[in-house]
Amino acid sequence: MIDQTTGPSPIVSLGVRAATPLALVIAVFVFFAGHNRPGGGFAAGLLIGAVLVLRSIAGFPLPFRAIPLLATGTIIACTVALAPMLWGNVFLDQVVVEQTLPLLGKVKSGSALVFDIGVTLIVSGLIVAVLDGFRADHLATPPPDLANEKTNAENSS
């Protein structure tokens, strides 16, 4: 039985710390893999989200606020949608650029990839919002005195 007042055990904490970079690397991989293989922005976003859920449960504070993440994602996606029109193309037209990146090798990246960044930001933003909204930190550090809280609520209502 874990002591409720101190939060999760150091083992969980350590495990989460170790898993974080690993998961993030996988997320990046999945993100870029998406073009030719299963994956993509949505999966990457969910992976990042999963990491955040884990960290949140282990008692780490959330690293971002949800709304800026969501807003940025929206703006990026909309910009990608509108940008082709600057060149006189139909909106949401695809622009493909081929380039060689370290580690990943030759990557054909297009505006779709930028669009996918927006997707990733929004999906992880959603998870941050859910964690924030549901006060998931309570799962990590339960309120000091549940009974006390209840009487307070009753008094105030």
Binding site: H35, R37, P38, G39, G40, Q94, G110, A112, F115
Partner: peptide, 12 residues
């Protein structure tokens, strides 16, 4: 420009 049709559908 992608072999993953699902992804191309989604993003393009």
């Amino acid at each position: 420009g992608g072999k993953n049709v699902v992804n191309v559908i989604l993003t393009d």
